[in-house]
Amino acid sequence: MDRMIKNAYSMLSPSLIWLLLFLVIPVIYIGVISFTTNTGFGGILYEFSTEAYTAAFSSLYAKVLWQSLGWSLLATVLCLVIAYPFAYYIAHAGKWKNLLLLLVMVPFWTNLLIRLYAWIILLNNHGVINNLLMKLGIISEPLSLMYSPFAVIIGLVYGFLPFMILPIYASIEQLDRSYLEASEDLGASPVKTFLYVTLPLTFPGILAGIIITFVPAVSVFVVTDLLTGGKLLMVGNVIKDAFLIEMNWQLGSALSILLMVLVLLSIVIFMKFTSGKDRKFLI
């Protein structure tokens, strides 16, 4: 028994050490930085200070925090509402199922930057949509479609919708049909069966979808960066600029730690409400 445990640890140690060295310790380190004193231009004085967190919640950045939270929550809800019926249809598409899934995989695997670039071409002031509307005489001046919260939401939904579709699809697809038949046999209407059987049974997929849509959406910086030219900010933009431009490592670290808290919380929730076999919905 002892030898087995030793064996287990020794086989685990390479990946554990890797994750400790290159993930856990660096994250702890920025946790430390977030409580140090900023001496300007990337200077770190190891003296306790909560300045960075005060700054993060100050009126200057609080707006960005709430904005990111609001936009990413809205995008997540939109993704969920859009994805569920779509995933439901694919899961019931019979012989077309595999083809339809392949059609979801292509945007899923296409790099986010490329997919956002596609929207720049559409939303631009001289873009396809404005050109079309002007040619049709519907508008005489180009609409400012980019540089707006509308563009951010489009970018977030377009970027992360596949993340929502696939786990929900998986949970619907693996649903034991006999439960649905039982519900029907017992006289439940299709609506009732959906609300009381299908929806609760596909909950692990929904939860996984919400987590893997919301977490990247709240922390992404390229959507605002590319679709609003940096005019509108999300917390990711502030972190990026804090580290690369303003050299305020304390602020960047504090905001990263706040994101990290969100992540740990979502894992705890996921582990609490699902069982080990449901983790496949997450990856």
């Binding site: 994750l19 993930l23 660096p26 994250v27 380190y29 920025i30 987590i211 893997i212 977490v215 990247p216 709240v218 922390s219 992404v220 910086f221 990711g236 972190i239 990026k240 580290f243 960047g252 670290s253 990263s256 994101l259 990290m260 992540v263 979502s266 894992i267 997450l282 990856i283």
Partner: peptide, 12 residues
């Protein structure tokens, strides 16, 4: 690593 935002890994 499945859920962590890549920006946190990156800046850390």
């Amino acid at each position: 690593p499945v859920v962590i935002p890549d920006i946190v890994v990156a800046v850390a």
